[in-house]
Design a protein around this nucleic acid. Structure first.
Lengths: 204, 204
DNA sequence: ACCAAGATGGTACGGTCGTATCATCAAGCG
DNA sequence: CGCTTGATGATACGACCGTACCATCTTGGT
């Protein structure tokens, strides 16, 4: 046939450009023309690969989420790591500590804001994915409590897991908003682990 | 002079309509025509009172923030309330527990997402206002610790205050995203107070 | 060699949005 | 009573956006 090209790599090239545009100028700036210019291709090409704007936006959204999920792949290291270190690793993977993660956080915030309104973005089933982290975090709490089997730790530990995840979310928001530096965010994260894993080195 | 009309009430009427539009359909749907139709006035009127779109958006933003700030006005009750109750009151004022607060939270999230990008919304000095709550919360921790004077409590308590505020922010995000119901959010909030105010009724 | 089909470019069209301009109405004051 | 001025309505204009359509080039199979 004709000039065969790797569609996946082309799509990736375009969604990367789309992510940069959204992170820099917001979701409403992610127009066909802006994305095409950022990717160095023609408008027609973007249209060719993603059909319409919703397709482009959904693919962009999915790309960001998949990247974020991939950050937890190698996190499942040798289990014998101390629960506190595992939790700390999750926190570090959640927080926008470098520029790439910060950009992703901005893009996710934009999609999240769009998803809760009827603005064309779907009910955002993907963004609910971090919900599975509740189980992972609660499991680490159970390990810290010395529970033999995996589950059946009191529901309080599930609440603690929710606290950790909510704080991570709020901390992320504070970091992209410029209210928290990397240093203060890490200090808060460590303090959070202190507070939620028994009172070992408690108080000021 | 001519038909004198209360400009403040007219502006309020229009910003209220703008808030409804943003909460329902997102920030990019807050067009002159949509806001005018929602408020039941002509497009020219909106333009007359706010000049250009940035003026309308800034006024809308400010209106939401002022409403949120007003929610903390009557909160300064008789100081002798127990620190935990004061903190709980702050949490309840922060969380979107009714529909109006939920709508405000959605609008604030939309503005926040727009503010971190170069999408016309200013550097969002207003949204940083909740930062003063850090002092208030830290002060309650100092009271709970039995510090005689107001300040000078260890910096650890400031970190605890950051934890509480970050968790409130993340919890808000989880509620508008549909991941938390009112009940589970309140349960997490209470558990958070347990965790951060000494280990009184600790563990599961 | 050539042609079918995939990949890409160019461009036109309808719609909407922000804004500016022109026109009209209403009311208080001299 | 009429005029000045504030408040409101109607509309026009230029820009941009999403999308559809038409044209062109490229390449692999026969």
């Amino acid at each position: 046939m004709p000039r065969l090209v790797d569609h996946d790599v082309r799509r990736r090239q375009i969604t990367d450009a789309s992510r940069r545009v959204v992170a820099r100028d917001g979701l409403e700036a992610a127009t066909f023309q802006a994305v095409a210019a950022e990717a160095g291709v023609s408008v027609r090409l973007v249209q060719y690969y993603f059909g319409n704007k919703q397709g482009l936006l959904e693919a962009t959204h999915r790309a960001v989420i998949e990247d974020a999920a991939a950050r937890f792949g190698p996190a499942g290291q040798a289990e014998p790591a101390a629960p506190r270190e595992v939790l700390r690793g999750i926190l570090l993977a959640l927080l926008p500590l470098d520029d790439a993660q910060r950009a992703d956080a901005v893009v996710l915030a934009a999609f999240h804001a769009a998803a809760v309104t009827r603005s064309g973005i779907g009910p955002d089933a993907l963004l609910g994915a971090p919900r599975v982290l509740v189980d992972v975090v609660a499991h680490q709490f159970a390990r810290a409590d010395g529970a033999t089997d995996g589950s059946a730790a009191g529901s309080g530990r599930r609440l603690d897991a929710e606290i950790v995840l909510a704080a991570a979310s709020g901390l992320t928001q504070g970091m992209v908003g410029g209210h928290h530096s990397r240093e203060t965010a890490l200090a808060v994260a460590d303090r959070l682990l202190d507070r939620v894993l028994g009172p070992i080195g408690a108080s000021s």
